[in-house]
Design a protein around this nucleic acid. Structure first.
Length: 311
DNA sequence: AACGTTACCAACCGCCGTACG
DNA sequence: ACGTACGGCGGTTGGTAACGT
């Protein structure tokens, strides 16, 4: 036998609340509160509504200090941070935002914020132009191995994940500074301040995979329909363009390990050779007039993706 | 102007945890 | 220990306003 319904469905009104109903509920709540329980409240208040409906109307709309309207950047930041760490626990998220209801936040996330953030996903996954990717503030190259390692620790700590954060790509701004671009947009979006101040996110220094991908957006050539103007590289091989090299930081020091790279679609054996940071910088800056195209193959893990070079 | 599509959001539904008899 | 009722929560739906063709 199933549970008895909380109210007589045939005799309760559904749909939008009228101003008169709102006034009745508000007046009753201000005088008596829930008067014991929500189920009995509608009858006492003279409302032809389900108790649950009354509760929802009160909590989401009528109770004092409810905030409606645009969410601030600060509220966006809090929602993203919490969503990234605890997921869709809307009531917990709402508890951190005075005046906002879980329903409000849920709606806002589903209709606006999620889309806003999706626009920041790197083109490798979204097929959007790289100009839409999220990038950190510029950093000196020598800071970045520490930055990624520490930030990955932060990621593992807050998500309780056993997997390292997805590989960010490194973007060469000029000869001196670099930015990270990543699909872990909520984290990077929420923690721009932390990224600027390594003291903020160096939680426990837990070591983990610290691969980084070198690449810049200047050679980006993919359009939303996947077309590409670089006719000497097979179009279907190009998911997005990068200018740079693929490799990873050696654990704990300033060396950079170069991995697979291709020249004119032929492999050049850079595999796991150790490079000084200065050499990497020179390699990137010396290729400003050329292009390196990053080949994203759905069937491969990030670790096996290739870099194409052509002039 | 008419129609179709998309975006938004209030409200509903059903499940789950817990209090209580 | 068990059954029942209630409150709370997150997912989903449906109405409608806004926008595009």
């Amino acid at each position: 036998m199933g549970r008895a319904p909380c109210c007589d469905k045939a005799n309760v009104k559904k749909g939008p609340w009228s101003p008169e109903e709102d006034a009745k509920l508000k007046e009753f709540m201000e005088k008596y509160g829930t008067a014991g329980n929500w189920i009995a409240l509608p009858q006492k208040a003279g409302l032809k509504r389900c108790g649950k409906s009354c509760r929802l109307r009160w909590l989401n709309y009528l109770r004092p200090n409810i905030k409606h309207g645009e969410f601030s950047d600060e509220e966006d930041r809090i929602i993203c941070t919490l969503f990234a760490s605890i997921g869709s626990r809307w009531s917990i998220i709402a508890a951190q935002l005075p005046g906002r209801t879980d329903n409000d936040i849920k709606n806002y996330w589903n209709t606006k914020l999620k889309k806003k953030l999706m626009g920041l996903v790197p083109s490798k996954y979204s097929q959007q132009p790289l100009s839409n990717t999220f990038q950190t503030q510029p950093h000196s190259l020598s800071n970045l191995s520490h930055l990624y390692r520490d930030f990955n620790s932060f990621y593992l700590q807050t998500t309780k994940s056993v997997e390292p954060m997805a590989l960010p790509s490194l973007y060469c701004n000029n000869s001196d500074t670099f930015s990270l671009t990543t699909s872990q947009y909520p984290y990077f979006l929420q923690n721009q301040e932390a990224l600027l101040d390594p003291q903020c996110y160096n939680i426990n220094g837990k070591e983990s995979s610290n691969m980084l991908m070198f690449g810049g957006n200047e050679a980006s050539c993919s359009s939303s329909d996947g077309s590409c103007s670089k006719d000497h590289v097979k179009q279907e091989e190009i998911a997005c363009g990068f200018q740079g090299f693929y490799g990873g930081f050696d654990q704990g020091n300033q060396k950079f390990m170069l991995h697979d790279a291709f020249v004119d679609q032929k492999p050049i054996n850079l595999g796991s050779s150790q490079c000084d940071m200065e050499l990497v910088k020179q390699l990137i800056s010396s290729n400003n007039s050329s292009s390196l195209v990053f080949n994203h193959d759905e069937g491969k893990s990030d670790e096996r993706e290739m870099v194409y070079y052509y002039s």
